[in-house]
Simulated assay, not measured.
Amino acid sequence: MVDVADGMTADEAARAIGAAVPHEALAVTQVATDFDVARYGSGGLTSRAWERALSTYAALGSARRAAAVSEASA
């Protein structure tokens, strides 16, 4: 579980998620960087960044489901 706080940056959230799901840490960090570029940089998301975000979201959902099943069977 990741604690979310008001004012949390994308980078801070990525570090917390990466600590909880280490095998997705690099992908989450890249999505956070893509967010920062889109929000604070010179433009929106590229199609590659959008696909990376969708893929990472799906991978994190799978990790969450796997953790829930593991906890339920413990």
Rank of each mutant, 00 (worst) to 15 (best):
V21L: 07
P22T: 05
P22W: 02
H23Q: 14
H23A: 13
A25F: 03
A25M: 02
A25K: 09
L26Q: 12
A27F: 11
A27V: 03
A27K: 11
A27H: 13
V28E: 05
T29H: 08
Q30R: 15
V31M: 06
V31Q: 09
V31S: 07
V31L: 05
V31F: 11
A32P: 09
T33C: 01
D34S: 11
F35M: 02
F35G: 01
D36S: 06
D36L: 01
A38G: 14
A38I: 07
R39I: 04
R39C: 07
Y40R: 11
Y40E: 13
G41R: 08
S42L: 08
S42A: 12
S42Y: 01
G43T: 06
G43W: 00
G44V: 07
L45M: 15
L45V: 11
L45A: 15
T46H: 06
T46A: 08
T46M: 06
S47H: 08
S47D: 13
S47N: 11
S47I: 10
R48A: 15
R48N: 12
R48I: 02
R48C: 01
A49M: 14
A49V: 02
E51G: 06
E51N: 14
R52T: 02
R52K: 11
A53Q: 09
L54R: 13
L54V: 07
L54A: 11
L54G: 13
L54M: 10
S55E: 07
S55W: 05
S55V: 08
